[in-house]
Computed example of a mutant assay.
Amino acid sequence: MIRDYVPADRAAVNAVALAAFAQYAGDYADWPAFSAGIGRMADLAGDGDLLVAERAGRVAGAVVHVGPGRPRSAIYPDDWSVLRMLVVDPDRRGGGIGRALVEAALERAVRAHAPAVGLHTSPIMATALRMYLALGFVREHDLPPIRGVPYARYVLRLT
């Protein structure tokens, strides 16, 4: 089940985010500082729609949809929707949770009349990247590395 975040989800969302990114601890320079930000994923609910995947009464994943006109990185136009921090509990991967979360976020973007949806990701996140490409996202250009990890901007045109 995909639903909106509620404050009672805070600890579980933050724990899933940390667990989801833990496999990359050796890839990021200054992992302690980077992971501190990851561990505050629930704070993003203030800037967008934090969607939660729940399985068997537990948070299994989450993603943030930042609609047009909401605060975002300068790498995205103001009229786009943006996807941030797709995370899935490592023990729940392979069951379609990530795809369901992204599809729910894309529905929000369509309802918000965004002409496009942007996201940034890294080749080290190979499974997520394959899913984004399968959904129609297209790589636009490289971005500066984040703590030593390469990133690029991807876009899905809706109009």
Rank of each mutant, 00 (worst) to 15 (best):
I75V: 15
V155E: 13
V6D: 05
S81F: 05
P68M: 13
R93C: 11
A116C: 12
A62N: 00
A62I: 00
A17L: 03
H120Q: 12
R108Q: 10
G37Y: 01
A8K: 05
A25T: 11
G136E: 07
A56Y: 04
M131N: 09
G46A: 13
D49C: 06
D27A: 15
L156H: 06
G136S: 10
A128F: 07
V110F: 07
A36I: 07
A126N: 07
I75A: 15
Y132R: 05
A25W: 14
R99A: 12
G48Y: 03
A128L: 04
D47C: 08
L18D: 15
E140K: 14
P71G: 12
A104S: 13
R10Q: 14
A19F: 06
D4Y: 09
A128T: 00
P145S: 04
V138Y: 02
Y151A: 02
V52D: 00
Y5W: 02
L156G: 09
R40K: 15
V110H: 14
Q23K: 15
A20T: 06
E140C: 11
G48E: 00
G118Y: 08
S35Y: 02
H113P: 07
N14A: 03
V110I: 14
G39C: 12
G118Q: 09
D43H: 05
V66F: 08
S81T: 08
I38A: 11
A29C: 12
R84W: 09
P123F: 09
S122E: 05
P71Q: 09
M125A: 14
N14W: 00
R99C: 13
G57N: 10
R92S: 15
P150M: 11
G96D: 11
D78N: 15
A12I: 10
R108C: 08
G96K: 03
R58V: 05
A17R: 01
A114V: 12
R99D: 14
A126E: 13
G46I: 06
P7M: 03
L158I: 07
A112Q: 01
R147I: 05
A33F: 03
R84Q: 11
P68C: 09
A134N: 13
R93T: 14
A20N: 00
D27F: 06
H65M: 14
R10I: 00
D78Y: 06
T121L: 11
L83S: 05
L83R: 08
F34K: 07
L101I: 01
M41Y: 10
G57M: 04
V155Y: 13
A17D: 02
P77D: 12
E107C: 07
S35W: 05
G148I: 02
A42Y: 00
A25V: 02
A109P: 09
I75Q: 14
L143S: 06
H120T: 12
L119Q: 08
G136F: 11
L44N: 13
R139W: 07
